[in-house]
């Protein structure tokens, strides 16, 4: 699905350096988020061998995040814009939420999806004889294949068989679909919320007219407000339940 979408959106994504730079920064954020999850997995797993595998994978993800961010910054510089900065992704604490087996299934699916998407991009650049960008994606694809392979092997080992492995992948696919649905809902809700809040702000105009008179900006030293009174009395606790 992602590969198909990538194929369709190729002309739009790479149409301008501005669009491409933003897309690459999104990849950078995704890799950074993945790195955070893998570091957490390394810390939480009980096996030294798996810890080592997660650490190596996390380092690859960190390198990818830096590569995507640097390429994005370079493209933006070329189009006269400033860099989008260093990626600082959020984490869903997937290892804790899913457990190790499903976490591995999730990572495996993500690596497969990423590899297919990057292959589409690589082919796009290959068709245009853009050797530099082709090589860029080729390097990352090699890593993704390695990640797919080791996560698959570990998943089989932990799940205890091929049927169990496939079952885990199916469960995680369902979980991801549910997560995508919720994210879409959140995306829509955010737009509605934003519009409502702008409308509310306009409705607050009458208050804005007199707030300056009632509670003006104070300049210089102010006498201590109630909240700054000596420490013993200022702790506020909830009412007793």
């Amino acid at each position: 699905m992602n590969a198909l979408l990538a194929r369709i959106s190729n002309p739009i994504v790479w149409r301008s350096r501005h669009h491409a730079a933003r897309k690459l920064f999104e990849f950078s954020l995704a890799e950074h988020g993945s790195m955070l999850d893998l570091f957490a997995a390394a810390r939480l797993t009980s096996s030294a061998d798996r810890r080592a595998a997660y650490l190596r994978h996390a380092l690859d993800e960190r390198r990818h995040a830096a590569m995507f961010a640097a390429k994005s910054a370079e493209m933006r510089r070329d189009s006269g814009r400033e860099s989008l900065g260093f990626p600082n992704a959020d984490t869903d604490r997937l290892f804790e939420r899913l457990g190790e087996q499903r976490f591995l299934a999730f990572v495996h699916r993500g690596e497969t999806r990423g590899r297919r998407q990057f292959e589409v991009y690589r082919d796009w650049f290959a068709d245009r004889a853009d050797k530099r960008n082709r090589a860029f994606f080729d390097g990352i694809i090699r890593d993704e294949i390695r990640h797919e392979s080791y996560t698959n092997a570990l998943l089989s080992e932990l799940a205890g068989g091929e049927r169990e492995r496939r079952a885990e992948l199916r469960i995680v696919a369902g979980w991801e679909a549910w997560r995508t649905w919720r994210r879409a809902g959140r995306f829509l809700a955010e737009r509605i919320y934003y519009a409502s809040m702008v409308a509310l702000y306009v409705l607050l105009a009458p208050f804005a007219l007199f707030v300056g008179g009632v509670r003006p900006v104070r300049v210089g030293w102010c006498s201590p407000p109630a909240v700054c009174q000596p420490s013993h009395s200022s702790l506020r606790t909830a009412p007793q339940e």
Binding site: V227, C228, S231, S234, L235, R236, T237, A238, P239, Q240, E241
Partner: peptide, 11 residues
């Protein structure tokens, strides 16, 4: 919840 309280930021 009644064991959780706040103080002022600058305090």
């Amino acid at each position: 919840r009644n064991r959780v309280s706040t103080v002022a930021h600058h305090q």
